Amino acid sequence: MRILNICAYTWAIGGPARIIYDHTNEVLAQGHQVDILSPMTPGEKMYPVPEGARLIECKRTTPISNFYREFSIEMYDYLKKHINEYDIIHMHGIWHFGSLAPFLIPHKAALVITIHGLLDKWAVAHSKWKKDLVTLLYQKRLLGKADLIQINNRDEEEDVIRYLGYRPANMVIVPNGMKVSEYINLPEKGIFRKKNGIGPSQQMILFMGRLNIKKGLDLLLPAFQQIHEKLPNAALILAGPDDGYLSETEEFIKKNNLSKKIKLVGMLTDTVKKEALSDADLFVLPSYSEGFSIAVLEAMTSKVPALVSDRVGFGDYIKKYNAAYLTPLTSAGVADGLLKILQDKNYADELRKQAFTMVTDNFDIKVVANQLLEEYKKIKKM
């Protein structure tokens, strides 16, 4: 099959780029062709491209793209010329031009949309007026026209049904996957700590994600302030690019004199990210809204005990396996979870064990990639 993924394929976008990367490696190994069509802004760092795949970069068209995400005349022109070279056009996310453009051009390809959690209540309420406008103009109608809607879990199924008012026949649950083998042998412990001035006796709490309020930073920061009084050796690492919440974070750190205990280290990639996971005592993501958090899976595969909300995309699996501390979305709840994991070694060890079992049982990329390929085959038209 000839497959085209449409996504802003950058480090800053996070999970979707990683999902495409891992899935593409498995698909290429089975003899299929994969291209990635990516709208981009000059200066953005593109995600690595799997060997054998092709990345097609398209400049975003400003100023329109400042208001309508990923609007790109170059992308539209590429699709107009080449859309019939593909069997599958796979759009990642909604609310942006990349999930509209393929519907505007006559084609013979099968169209796939992955929701990536963008229809949950928190996500829909964010920039609501824009989403109401897109809904009115086309979004509901196009979801109904897609050949396949990929969702990751039962929560997303409920979100789609609530949004559309019915359960579409073209919707299927296929979770995201992890390349487990990449996280089995992590770098030697101590490298990240040494680079960032964190002592070997300190308890290192790691947050990895965009600095956006939806990630629960408004809960995590005051929670850390609370537990810091009981665990003065604890250190919080905030690893991720600014996405609207950096100034609030810096103000909180300054106001509460926590500059020696909370470190902003920017976005971590490749080996440096694995060095951080190797050194972490706890991973935290009290998110209000996630499609399917690859960062959480990376931490779990790295055997780091995790504190997360049930909105990370696979809360049902976490409950079944008792694979993480599921926090209520309150600062006090997050603080309780941090203390529980950091003060109870047996509990932390059990979370590590259960989480790794959950990932290997359900989310190994080899299994997941084949599930999605089978769905592609069912809808392929040519």
Rank of each mutant, 00 (worst) to 15 (best):
Glu350Leu: 14
Thr327Leu: 11
Leu329Arg: 12
Ala299Lys: 00
Lys345Asp: 13
Tyr325Glu: 08
Ser309Thr: 00
Val312Ser: 01
Pro305Trp: 08
Met300Phe: 15
Val304Ser: 11
Pro305Gln: 11
Ile318Gln: 01
Ala332Cys: 03
Asp349Ala: 09
Asp344Tyr: 03
Tyr325Gln: 08
Lys303Asp: 10
Leu338Asn: 07
Ala324Trp: 05
Asp316Tyr: 13
Asp336Gly: 11
Ala348His: 10
Tyr347Val: 04
Val296Asp: 03
Arg352His: 08
Leu329Gly: 06
Ser302Thr: 03
Asp316Ile: 05
Tyr317Trp: 15
Gln354Ser: 15
Asn346Trp: 12
Tyr347Glu: 00
Phe356Leu: 13
Leu338Phe: 05
Lys320Ile: 11
Ile318Glu: 00
Tyr347Asn: 06
Arg352Ala: 09
Gln354Trp: 12
Gln354Asp: 15
Lys340Arg: 13
Gly337Cys: 07
Leu326Pro: 06
Met300Lys: 03
Ala355Thr: 12
Gly315Met: 11
Leu339Phe: 07
Pro328Val: 05
Asp349Asn: 15
Ala295Phe: 09
Leu307Met: 04
Thr301Gly: 10
Lys345Ser: 13
Gln343His: 03
Asp344Trp: 02
Ala324His: 03
Tyr325Asn: 05
Lys303Ile: 03
Leu339His: 09
Ser331Asp: 10
Ile341Leu: 07
Ala299His: 04
Thr357Ala: 15
Lys345Ala: 14
Ala335Pro: 10
Pro328Ile: 02
Asp316Lys: 13
Ser309Glu: 00
Gly333Pro: 03
Leu339Thr: 14
Leu307Asp: 01
Ala335Thr: 07
Leu297Ala: 02
Arg311Phe: 12
Leu307Cys: 01
Ala299Asn: 05
Phe356Ala: 11
Gln354Met: 12
Ile341Val: 14
Leu297Ser: 07
Glu298Asn: 04
Asp349Ile: 07
Gly315Leu: 09
Tyr347Arg: 04
Val308Asp: 01
Gly313Thr: 12
Val304Ala: 06
Leu342Lys: 00
Leu338Glu: 09
Ile341Asp: 03
Asp349Phe: 11
Ala295Leu: 07
Asn346Ala: 14
Gly313Lys: 11
Gly333His: 05
Lys320Glu: 14
Gln343Ser: 14
Lys340Gly: 00
Ile318Trp: 11
Arg352Pro: 02
Thr327Pro: 08
Val312Arg: 01
Ala306Pro: 09
Leu329Ser: 10
Leu329Ala: 06
Leu307Glu: 01
Leu307Ser: 10
Pro328Arg: 01
Phe314Lys: 05
Ala348Ser: 14
Lys353Asn: 15
Asp316Val: 14
Thr330His: 14
Pro305Gly: 08
Leu342Asn: 02
Gln354Cys: 14
Val334Asn: 06
Ile341Met: 06
Asp336Cys: 08
Asp344Gly: 01
Tyr325Ala: 02
Val304Ile: 12
Ala332Pro: 05
Ala323Leu: 08
Ile318Pro: 00
Leu342Arg: 00
Lys320Gly: 11
Thr330Arg: 15
Pro305Phe: 07
Lys345Asn: 10
Ser331Trp: 02
Ala295Gln: 06
Ser309Leu: 04
Val308Glu: 05
Tyr321Arg: 02
Tyr347Met: 12
Glu350Ala: 15
Phe314Ala: 08
Ala324Phe: 01
Ala306Trp: 03
Ile318His: 02
Lys345Thr: 10
Lys320Phe: 12
Lys303Asn: 10
Val296Gly: 07
Asp310Trp: 07
Val304Glu: 06
Thr357Gln: 15
Val296Ile: 13
Pro305Lys: 09
Val296Cys: 10
Lys353His: 15
Phe314Ser: 04
Leu297Val: 06
Leu351Glu: 08
Leu329Phe: 06
Gln354His: 13
Val334Arg: 00
Tyr321Val: 04
